[in-house]
């Protein structure tokens, strides 16, 4: 096998992957835009049923985790493996907290019978059905990305520990951080579209 240590190439690959992620989410944003234009009253009604406080809290958590991800990168560049590991751990932990909060939020909705396929759900106005379906699918796919990010950070943490990722070889950490920032930015758009816009 050819040995490559082409960091620029690796980063280019990651950026290209993030383009594909953008278009992947783009399909859902397109549906959101079209259905919001069709059913604007239903959408604002349904949106007011979401909990803004929880949404805001989760936003803060995710932005903070992006900060700690960036911090771990600058620490590892300095060779400070220990503080880089701590930042990585905090990033993964904040991701887990985000998911736990998301879980409680989903359970509350499902507890009220608001989920695709329930009898109550199918009796809702068409616009509300579409809004909540979009809510579940968009936050669900986003949460899946968060989950993948957490696993990636755990693996990187292990790699820092074992010496694979270190002061002069941090491209894996850098790419993981790029991915995490994308996950963050996706949420930055999801949050106002689902929770704030009325």
């Amino acid at each position: 096998m050819v040995k490559h240590t082409d960091d620029v190439g690796a980063k280019m690959g990651m950026w290209l992957f993030l383009f594909t992620e953008m278009l992947f989410f783009g399909g859902m944003f397109l549906l959101y835009a079209v259905y919001r234009a069709h059913y604007s009253a239903d959408f604002s009604g349904a949106s007011s049923e979401l909990n803004r406080v929880i949404g805001t809290f989760n936003t803060v958590i995710l932005i903070t985790s992006s900060f700690t991800a960036a911090l771990s990168l600058s620490e590892i560049k300095k060779g400070a493996l220990r503080s880089a590991s701590v930042s990585l751990g905090i990033t993964a932990l904040l991701g887990i907290i985000f998911l736990i909060i998301k879980y409680t939020e989903w359970s509350a909705k499902i507890g009220h019978g608001i989920y695709p396929g329930s009898a109550y759900f199918n009796d809702l106005a068409h616009g509300k059905v579409l809004f909540f379906s979009l809510y579940f699918v968009m936050t669900g796919i986003h949460a899946l990305h968060v989950l993948i990010g957490i696993v990636v950070f755990m693996v990187i943490l292990f790699m820092v520990h074992s010496g694979t990722v270190r002061g002069n070889n941090f491209i894996k950490l850098e790419n993981a951080a790029l991915y995490w920032h994308f996950v963050d930015i996706a949420w930055i758009y999801l949050f106002p579209l689902l929770y704030l816009l009325r």
Partner: peptide, 19 residues
């Protein structure tokens, strides 16, 4: 990626009736 999300939405539509 656009067909990926489209087909995923179709699968969810069939599984859960997302509409």
């Amino acid at each position: 990626p656009v067909i990926a999300i489209t087909l995923l939405l179709l699968i969810l539509e069939r599984a859960f009736g997302t509409g």
